[in-house]
Design a protein around this nucleic acid. Structure first.
Length: 828
RNA sequence: AGGCACGUAGCUCAGUGGAAGAGCACUACCUUGACACGGUAGGGGUCGGCGGUUCAAUCCCGCCCGUGCCUACCA
């Protein structure tokens, strides 16, 4: 017997009735880290298994979504590590451009009453780094509390120098390949964040009841008017045409007529545009505002219309708005309406449901604006990423998400990647003071590549955060260098993340991975659900319905939280969430307590047990060891449990795996085997008999296997118990580095399972009779079993003692009858 | 508007072309030396509705009703 970890195991709590996680968890986590069990060596001659963490915001705090994802990722990682894979789970954090900048700006305003402009860019960026230093990475400490077996030696941050190098490299290469371009386009502009946003960063709140106003534009020749409809009257200041359908008999004749904008005095024409205009909608005439509407922008390109930008970056009307210049966009809306009414051009309004775009970060209404920005040309990148999924090189779990992926990828639009922020990767582009042309370079260039002038100014914009995130699976492994890490761990095995960032992150990683690495970034994408409160409402601080994982861990233990989440982690059907309730955690804690007490029972009954001797006896299987029915049965059931858990994990059915382990431990090991063991150990003469050590051996064997089986789900509890179980010499120092249970065919015993099933059925029948007839528990009656065949008779006679013990009967008699059913009787 | 899902026990959810499952809740009994964060036994579902395919449908197909989510430039 080796006695490792005596100093570590909590001997004081050994006989405590309830499991006390608070004293046990930090101790084991420290030990695991100290012994470097989480570290995967890229040179190890084992099959690789790699997961990269979805990097949380560096200044973020752990929420239930992280807890779910990281529990899932840790389950996979610990499972595969025990299954002898070179399992590597890479940790890291994201600089989270807008989100972090906003947090620091708010602090600056609150603490010093200053804006970022007051202190300037350099100082502001310094402040962000200071903030990251101070409050950053606390989420990583929180992940440790959860028990995450992350390879801390590989910690990455998306703004660290080596990662920035990868970001610059990716930008420059795509630019060289013509896949990044700079152009004046209609983009989404947040007037509060004062930056451009990608299409994905705009949220549309569906079904807002608004108003559709109708106004008349008089035709200049006095021949009448054309009535248009709009939800944004202020944009009339920027109209450069009115479009009608060329086949619309109501408006056909007006095409080519001139209009003078009654608000600004500008002149424009009525044009025919069959693409823009749906003659069945509204009045059949559409005002065209090329600088503030995506459709109108395209119409203007088709028809050669001018663009008038009427809003500045703050959302205030520009000089182009004539008399309305200087008004905020919403004030301008009112003023324009009032002016049109004054002019007698109002033609009514009707209620209208339409979706308004809001900034994902600050919820401000987003304005479509004309702006010069950097874009990634997506279609050429999307094509291989579509094919890879079609060909099964990467698969989605659940599979139905691939449809969503295809739909988005096949309709993909170019990605606006420049942001007018200060916190992020500076765009590696310099404008020449002499020729005004742009030089893109990996390092600050000495001179303009076009004219050789040295007066270069770097682009002041930074890149969208996701432009660094999409490189995560390979930039974290050393790209663009050809590292051993990349060779070993790329493509990664599984990516686990919430379905809410399928487009933001997963799809883009597919594109970047295939483009830069020529291989998919991961073989499987496991998409988990969103965690909501028990009513199904999204958890939010504003609503006050959040559940803090750390509070849960403090009160119930990390294992209880993890097991609760694993239990709930069924496949993510679209639009379905995990309704998380504290009841789930309480249930999981009850399970932990149950395991703890089952272990106590075992440990209290191991006197005289010799693990070495038992191991020798069963080394050749149960027959040689001459085990009895209950022992054969439980050791066979262990194999079934192992099989069920393993199959479920292979299929990413985490909930099924957790439930299979739960069912085995509670309903078979505890409810039946421990009860059978109690009776066996209590039998006369059991003290020194063979029976005693066989029971002890089966109990320890089943329990030990259950601990290994459950370790990925409940790492702390299982380690604590495992350490205390008797083991043969040469056993590893920690459950973490044992082998995950593998089904042992020699112990699968169909005959014993069938016999035991019959015995169980009879016992339950006897108990039912007792309960239904209100017979006292203490009454010791004679059970008379009438069975239909000799086979059953033989079995039941053979295990009469067990039936009597478990059925609380004084005696059991078995009779043969013509009938095919078992008819138990109790006779007083 | 289009797309994707879902509708199974009081609640939350698994599941399968061949005699309906889990956890919780509920009822009765039990403080027995592992555990009352426990034990034993039990009640409870025409598997949303209507048709169709099949020897057989909760499962496959069609329609309908209800719910949720995603995408979209509807002035």
């Amino acid at each position: 017997m080796n006695k490792p970890n005596q100093d570590v195991a909590a001997t004081s709590s050994r006989y405590a009735k309830n499991y006390e996680p608070a004293s046990i968890e930090p101790r084991w986590y420290g030990e695991w880290v100290r012994r470097r069990y989480f570290h995967a060596d890229a040179q190890a001659p084992k099959a690789p298994f790699a997961i990269v963490i979805p990097p949380p915001n560096v200044t973020g705090v752990l929420h239930m979504g992280h807890a779910l994802g990281c529990t899932i990722e840790d389950i996979f990682t610990r499972w595969k590590r025990m299954a002898a894979y070179n399992a590597m789970w890479l940790p890291g954090t994201d600089h989270a451009g807008i989100a972090t900048q906003m947090v620091v700006e708010r602090r600056l305003r609150e603490k010093e009453g200053k804006s970022r402009h007051d202190i300037g860019r350099e100082e502001f960026v310094k402040r962000v780094w200071e903030w990251r230093q101070q409050s950053g990475d606390q989420i990583l400490e929180q992940l440790k509390r959860l028990g995450c077996s992350l390879d801390w030696d590989r910690l990455k941050f998306t703004m660290e120098p080596s990662y920035s190098e990868a970001v610059i490299e990716a930008f420059v290469r795509l630019h060289e390949e013509g896949l990044i371009y700079r152009a004046e386009r209609l983009i989404n502009w947040c007037v509060s964040c004062r930056t451009a946003l990608s299409d994905l960063e705009v949220d549309y709140d569906e079904g807002k009841q608004g108003e559709l106003y109708e106004f008349a534009y008089p035709l200049l020749d006095g021949s009448g008017e054309v009535v248009i409809a709009t939800t944004r009257p202020e944009t009339m200041l920027g109209d450069t045409a009115v479009a009608v359908h060329p086949d619309d008999p109501r408006h056909q004749a007006k095409i080519g007529r001139k209009i003078q904008n009654p608000l600004t005095g500008y002149f424009f024409n009525v044009i025919g545009d069959p693409v823009l205009v749906d003659p069945t909608f509204g009045t059949g005439a559409v005002k065209v505002t090329p600088a503030h509407d995506p459709n109108d922008f395209e119409s203007a390109q088709r028809n050669g219309l001018p663009f008038i930008s009427i809003l500045d970056e703050a959302g205030v009307v520009t000089a182009a708005g004539g008399p309305f210049a200087g008004l905020d966009r919403f004030a301008a809306r009112k003023a324009v309406k009032a002016r049109l009414k004054e002019l007698g051009l109002e033609r009514g309004s009707k209620p209208h449901v339409h979706a308004v775009g809001h900034c994902q970060r600050c919820e401000t209404v987003v304005e479509p604006m004309l702006s010069t920005q950097w874009f990634v040309k997506m279609e050429p990148l999307a094509r291989p990423a579509i094919e890879a999924v079609e060909q099964g090189k990467t698969r989605f779990v659940p599979e139905s998400w691939s449809k969503t992926y295809f739909h988005w990828m096949r309709n993909i639009r170019d990605w606006c990647i420049s942001r007018q922020l200060w916190w992020g990767h500076r765009i590696p582009a310099w404008t020449c003071g002499a020729c005004a042309k742009i030089t893109v370079a990996r390092q600050t260039p000495a001179a303009c590549v076009h004219c050789g002038d040295a007066a270069l100014t770097q682009d002041s914009d930074v890149l969208d955060t996701w432009f660094s995130s999409w490189l995560w699976p390979f930039a974290t492994l050393g790209w663009p260098k050809e590292t051993r890490e990349l060779k070993t761990f790329y493509p990664t095995t599984v990516l686990d993340t919430g379905y809410d960032i399928l487009f933001f992150w997963v799809a883009r990683m597919m594109m970047a991975g295939l483009h830069f690495m020529k291989k998919v970034p991961f073989r499987t994408v496991y998409l988990h659900t969103m965690v909501t409160d028990e009513k199904g409402d999204k958890m939010s601080k504003v609503k006050g319905n959040t559940i803090d994982p750390l509070v849960v861990i403090d009160k119930y233990g990390a294992d209880a939280l993890r097991f609760a989440l694993a239990w709930l982690a069924t496949h993510a059907s679209q639009g379905k969430n995990i309704k998380f309730s504290m009841n789930n955690v309480e249930d999981a804690r009850r399970f932990a307590t149950k395991i703890w007490n089952a272990s106590r029972f075992a440990l209290m009954n191991l006197e005289g047990f010799d693990a070495e001797r038992f191991a020798d006896r069963v080394a050749d299987g149960p027959d040689r060891a001459e085990l009895d029915l209950p022992e054969r049965w439980i050791l066979s059931r262990v194999q079934r449990a192992i099989e069920a858990v393993d199959e479920a994990l292979e299929d990413y059915r985490i909930s099924d795996a957790a439930q299979a382990a739960y069912h085995f431990v509670w309903n078979e090991l505890c409810d039946w085997y421990i009860e059978l063991a109690k009776a066996a150990l209590a039998r006369e003469g059991a003290a020194d008999s063979e029976l005693r050590w066989k029971v002890q051996g089966a109990l320890v064997t089943a329990l030990e296997a259950a601990m290994r089986l459950l370790h990925p789900f409940m790492p702390f509890l299982t380690e604590e118990i495992w350490q205390q179980l008797p083991k043969s010499s040469g056993a590893p120092q920690s459950i973490m580095i044992t082998l995950y249970p593998v089904k042992d065919l020699r112990f699968i015993d169909d005959a014993s399972e069938a016999s035991m099933a019959l015995v169980q059925k009879v016992i339950v029948a006897l108990r039912t009779i007792r309960a239904e007839k209100n017979i006292a528990q203490t009454a010791r009656l004679t059970a008379i079993l009438t069975v239909g065949d000799d086979y059953k008779k033989t079995i039941l006679e053979g295990y009469r003692e067990i039936v009597a013990e478990q059925g609380r009967c004084a005696a059991v008699r078995v009779r043969r009858a013509g009938s095919t059913t078992n008819i138990p009787h109790l006779v007083g």
